[in-house]
Design a protein around this nucleic acid. Structure first.
Lengths: 354, 354
DNA sequence: GTGAAAGCGCTAACAT
DNA sequence: ATGTTAGCGCTTTCAC
């Protein structure tokens, strides 16, 4: 412990030069300001030797720029957040910009608080994965609105708030959901069902829409069920109860589109308990095949999932959003049709029905 | 978009008061400085109405404190990082302190860069999960050393650098590894093996030691194998090759202690391929039981793992480290024997051998 | 080629 | 009870 940083003034004293000269030289402006090559060398050498590091606060204050962007998102514990973050950091790092992160920890008031503190810290720009409230849940978006309306540029990731957000980078959820559901149908499903959280975010709303697009197109409207979970916990008994009811009503779906990753694993585990026999399709002659699962997400615990997975390009989402943010910070004007960027998703089929 | 923040001076002009008075009143020091109650009310009302928010940069500069701590860790994509982060944020939030995060993205030079930029931003304190180099990998720890030796207090989490780190909060890895290995032995394993990454970090070194403690105590030294992976990728063919060799040599272990989470899942999936029959223990009379697995970690993809798991108290690690950091920031002196805090780990047995 | 001076927005000691 | 003043450490314009 010990060494306080040397200041520009102190360095100036050591060199018997003025702070101004040194500041210019170290900023690489020595050329344009015609500081003697020898002087520049001396400055650099001494600065290095004494370990001079400019005070970032003072510099930011003077220049009106912090070289820091803020990121607010609801929950670190979801794996997809990590991937978004990796994308953000990759871009930020290559521009020498720091990333300040605050998570809302699944609590909308924490989101508001975090947004406000971040804005106070004079960040150059803001990336936001908005909080996902349940449909019907009270959710005040003043802080988001305030943030979006401030001078500081901002970009939403993965979902956005229509009417509030102007810039966003999201996935092609509706289309991907439709394609995934079409795969289920193509694989022979006649009773595809939708399982998801009942969250009021664009992402999930669009997935459900995409599913329904496919159902309607295939003329399966009457035979398709859906379950919208009203609790955050994927281990809640709701899914089991739903499956039990469907089974009792002789309506057990032969395929599922599941809105999120963990939910799909949970569903698979429940279905296995319902029909503990082998894979169904493996021993020929088995009367009832196990239902097919399609899901958003791609996490696989080191073995094939047997599912249809929609690979969400999270890292790309993060990267593109950050690039967009830097464009905005640089003052670029983005035409209306490019304000919401939509990234395609890849579908991976691991059902192995060769 | 649009509204720039109003400054204290401007607010003062509106109120026909001096900036100083307002600053004091808004800081809650109105009482001690005996500012008229009515004046205080007016100040507060107007500040609110005009949406005054103090400029954090200027404030930090003047006070020599940023109310921000920095966190540097190697990789966001590991699930355990999320838990540590949750602990950190919980404590930081309740103190009104912001958390600035930078990840080294599995690259030791990024770690150095991140440490330097964070230190430049005048953070009040630093939390560090040091980069984990492979044994033998070139790793310059100058930046870490610099950071640790600066005036800014710092605390390491999960692992530390002996000789450099002074404050850390870590798990009781050696003891937990010994206990886990003892469980394997108690469950009848006579050829327990150790599988882990060959990383030069205290955490993993201690786990291996703990394993060996148990082996030695049980007199199984000769019949115990180990594999130290020299690649970050858990999907590399190394594990498979190791298992194949062992099988060929008639030395396939009947139990494994695995240093990390994902690795254990990988191992299980490989073992299943090796002996694809049912659970072994289920159909009585089966000659060869499937090997037991004990592992550090607790991730279970929604169904019982059948393993012995060492629950790592990551959130607590994060919390305790942050609390310790705040103590240091407050100027508390921590006695030598309390500088490295060791947190116990819980062992969860899901082998279901009733 | 280099330096002087002003000032970013705030706080805290010192006046009144 | 409130105001004045002097910076925190840096950048930038303008002057020499």
């Amino acid at each position: 412990m010990g060494k306080r940083n040397i200041t520009l003034k102190e360095l100036a004293a050591v060199l018997s030069l003025s702070p101004a000269t040194i500041s210019l030289a170290l900023d690489g402006k020595g050329e344009t300001y015609r500081i003697a090559a020898e002087t520049r060398r001396r400055i650099e050498e001494t600065a290095n030797r004494l370990g001079y590091r400019p005070n970032h606060l003072a510099r930011s204050m003077r220049r009106g720029k912090t070289d820091t962007i803020g990121v607010v998102f609801p929950d670190v514990s979801e794996a997809y957040m990590n991937r978004i973050l990796a994308g953000i950091e990759a871009v930020a790092l290559e521009r020498g910009v720091s990333v300040m992160i605050a998570t809302s920890s699944l609590d909308s008031s924490a989101e508001a608080r975090n947004l406000d503190t971040l804005m106070d810290r004079s960040i150059d720009g803001l990336l936001l994965v908005p909080y996902a409230p349940f449909r019907g849940e009270a959710y005040k978006n003043d802080a988001v609105r305030r943030a979006m309306e401030s001078v500081i540029p901002s970009v939403c990731i993965d979902r956005y708030l229509p009417g509030i957000t102007t810039h966003a980078v999201i996935g092609a959820d509706r289309e991907a959901a439709r394609l995934a559901a079409e795969r289920l149908i193509a694989a022979g499903c006649r009773r595809p069902a939708y399982l998801g959280f009942d969250l009021a975010i664009t992402t999930l709303v669009e997935r459900r829409r995409g599913f329904n697009d496919a159902i309607k197109a295939a003329g399966l409207t009457g035979s398709s069920d859906e379950k919208l979970l009203t609790e955050r916990n994927p281990d809640s008994p709701d899914i089991r109860e739903w499956l039990t009811e469907l089974t009792a009503a002789q309506r057990l779906p032969d395929g599922f589109l599941v809105s999120t990753d963990g939910l799909a694993l949970k569903l698979r585990s429940l279905l296995r308990k319902l029909s503990p026999a082998g894979r169904g399709s493996r021993r020929s002659g088995t009367r009832r095949k196990r239902p097919l699962i399609a899901r958003f997400g791609e996490d696989s615990p080191y073995f094939p999932t047997g599912m249809i997975s929609v690979r969400q390009p999270h890292e790309e989402l993060g990267r593109r959003a950050t690039e967009k943010l830097f464009a905005l910070i640089a003052g670029e004007v983005i035409p209306k049709e490019k304000q919401i960027e939509i990234i395609d998703m890849e579908i991976i089929d691991e059902t192995q029905h060769h």
